[in-house]
Design a protein around this nucleic acid. Structure first.
Lengths: 221, 221, 221, 221
DNA sequence: GATGAATGAGGCTTCATTCAT
DNA sequence: CATGAATGAAGCCTCATTCAT
């Protein structure tokens, strides 16, 4: 939006700036409307260029979307991987920081819309789905499973099935993103992400029961 | 499914059965492809009628969808409300039965696709979203919150914020439905719903930590 | 163009008549402008319908073109095959009748434009080219080769290589069609097809030389 | 191809070589894809310059094409005219040498693609068609007619209508060029140009019949 | 009631040409 | 001279909705 390039002539700077401007516009619109409902005309218009210009930089809609993901999402995964590998404290604290850090950098950002979009439309765009699955979902799963295994190995977590728990734990995180982009016009009392996350962390770590001794034995089956 | 028209002659029965056949076809296709991507041609074709006929029974795509929800989802909510109100046992057991019963009647059914569809496309169809929010989501929330409050009131659950916990608890349930309809072609190792649900119930009730005494005091903030 | 259906209501007759009207319009425009340069909008407009209607009857441009060929060209090939198989006279006379008959039914018709079109654009539309080659060109070649072999077997033609001669003989026939659709605006003195064909038949049967003894021995190499 | 700029420094040579490089690239692509389907981007890219540069040397696509013809085709016509005017032998031998020489210099060359292209697309580009007709076709016709008249005048050819025969004789020559560029992906057994040409010369000179006395009198009509 | 032919706006993509630098 | 970013008209195809019969 801001245009700090006034000292340069309008035209010369474009080669470098255009892709970024287009990616920013594309991110906005993909997040706002979804993949199928985003018209490339509108992306171009929002970036302040004509329809044809977009095709100078991105082969087609699919590649534009992939570029949005590469530009915005993948770096965050790398960052997360590094942080976790270097962490020294209690696994519960790691989880807490991971979840809150994720919220700060993704959940509370336009990027949450990408997650929502892919959950919503992967079925209709298999190529895009495959790309996203391979580049984002697989890596995300590995990150969480690694954290769980770390906690179990250090005796800080109960011995649970990390692969299953990964899915269960992901769910509230993903859902918080989805709610941000679903029924946003309908929520009488919108979710407070902070309270939601604290509630989630609390439940995740302590469970629901008052007494640690479970009243249900059927769980073992 | 049920056919309460036995007393009428066949051709007349057929006439009154039309809406049911259309609703069944619409359910199938909405679930398979989503709202926007479902073509009314295909709905009519799958129901064995012409496209024009569809418009005799349903004003437009939106009303068709609403009718699908009314026909298939709302009765299940009423049923759930009744069961819960009449339950006498431990709240943990109620939760367990609720979750597994939900899986049996919705999650493991085409109906899960409706949930997924609404999460995915509500943003692009505000009218539909409002309808679904008012008729389904609000009522679902009330059901779960009532169960939580019951557990707290009976001293079986910790004193948590039921409104927040509702969201957190819903999340893995909803996500299990979404995964059934997202990246289904990409999953190298598909989720086992049973294991997932057991893991969820276990975590929900017991939490993640080995010791009941939480190592994190920052939770209170 | 003429509309002899006034007694029927406009709407009812369409189902039967539409494909034919569309095929006629498509033939006209394909012949006039070529494959790539023919816009489906124009085909529809010339048939008096909207763009979308065309797609009710033909999947896409390629299928429309194939249908034009199937409707207009293939029946003529069948007819030619029958005539030749039943012919009893001298092979020179058969050739003469074949060529003049071809001129009457194809060359002097819009259909000549199809031949021209395929020669012109097969390279850019491989799928269409394959179809046309398999359905039309191969069969045409077989027809002419059969006539040549017949003449040789009956001692009426010299013993020549029928496969090669087929190509050589086809050439003036095809070229006459091509000229009709190429440089038609440039021809100061347009070709007279009848004179051209007589000249061709004469040359084909008698050759160019005054004396039957060839002055060139190098031909054998 | 030849580089007559050796006396100049390299960078200046390059400047003057630009049009040649562009023409070479244009020839390649026009021949490969046709007139309409050739994109000027590709021409510029193949010549190693930017798209804008192309417009420094050629006003537009049409002028570029004309320049390709002027550069590559017209010199060959002049050469042919000279050879024929200076020929002393039997007209049959002249024809033979003309045809084989044409094959060597045009037919068996990229240039054949120009002929094919003009036959294919002249209808959609009247300006180009007029240019090509005036500069190439008319002159070619004159050349062949002159050879026929020479043969008749010297008593070496039968007294035929040279103007018509010109067309008939051109046809197999042109068609051989067209086949090189049409259905090239479909040909199960591709044409051998040498055999084709020998067959053509043989038929042209001797005709098809076994006996010189024609069995058909209807030819005179 | 039932039909299904017809519509036409709208979306993705291409490419000859222009022009500021 | 040379560049190459930008344009925008145009073409193929889809699909919710209408309506004459």
């Amino acid at each position: 939006m801001a245009c700090p390039f006034k000292s340069k002539p309008r035209w010369e700077r474009r080669k470098e700036a255009r892709p970024q401007e287009l990616l920013a516009a594309a991110l906005d619109l993909f997040v706002e409307r979804g993949y199928a409902a985003t018209r490339l005309d509108d992306v171009a218009a929002q970036a302040g260029v004509s329809k044809g210009t977009l095709y100078l930089y991105f082969t087609n809609k699919e590649e534009l979307f992939k570029a949005v993901v590469r530009e915005n999402v993948l770096p965050l995964l790398s960052e997360a991987e590094e942080i976790i590998d270097g962490y020294a404290g209690h696994s519960a604290e790691l989880f807490r920081e991971f979840i809150l850090g994720w919220w700060e950098r993704i959940g509370n950002t336009k990027l949450s819309g990408i997650t929502k979009l892919m959950m919503a439309e992967s079925g209709n765009f298999p190529e895009v789905a495959k790309f996203y699955h391979d580049e984002v979902i697989s890596r995300s799963n590995i990150i969480i499973i690694r954290m769980l295994d770390r906690g179990i190995a250090r005796g800080e977590f109960r011995k649970i099935n990390a692969v299953q728990a990964n899915k269960v734990i992901c769910a509230p995180i993903i859902m918080l993103m989805m709610w941000k982009h679903s029924f946003s016009g309908c929520q009488t009392e919108p979710i407070s992400p902070e309270e939601y996350l604290n509630c989630f962390i609390d439940l995740l770590l302590h469970g629901l029961l008052t007494a640690p001794s479970a009243p249900l034995t059927s769980m073992d089956s």
